[in-house]
């Protein structure tokens, strides 16, 4: 399972980078989304994936069974997803407005602010 998700994260990274390198603005958004999901998956696998081993303490002994799943990466990923959600919404809004103003979805048209005089 871990191996599968790791490979998937790698594929997502590759796809994300490929989309980012395109000149189309929509692909830019898709690329960013893919990359952030890839990062989330990467963090998620870092705790080791163990099914059926939640961190619940035994009610009698008060200890946690050995080999339990690590909850921290899951908490981290949750936070990262929430933050990513906000970022994505803002990115999409901004790109929509930029598209409306610049009248182009070709990233190469975005070359006014660092032009030499």
């Amino acid at each position: 399972m871990s191996l599968l998700i790791t490979i998937m994260a790698g594929i997502l990274f590759a796809a994300g980078v490929y989309c980012l390198l395109r000149r189309n603005m929509t692909k830019l958004i898709i690329g960013i989304i893919l990359l952030s999901q890839a990062a989330n998956l990467l963090v998620f696998t870092m705790g080791g994936i163990r099914a059926h081993q939640p961190v619940f303490a035994d009610s009698e002994t008060g200890t946690v069974a050995a080999g339990h799943a690590d909850p921290v990466p899951q908490a981290l990923v949750l936070t990262a997803i929430v933050i990513g959600f906000g970022l994505m919404v803002f990115t999409i809004t901004l790109l929509m407005r930029a598209h409306a103003v610049l009248k182009s979805d070709d990233v190469n048209e975005f070359n006014h602010t660092d032009a030499l005089p």
Partner: peptide, 17 residues
């Protein structure tokens, strides 16, 4: 900057792992 955040997150994740 989003790209940098993603890389940061990966770095943190790997370190935690």
């Amino acid at each position: 900057n989003i790209l940098s955040s993603i890389l940061f997150l990966c770095g943190v994740g790997l370190l935690y792992g």
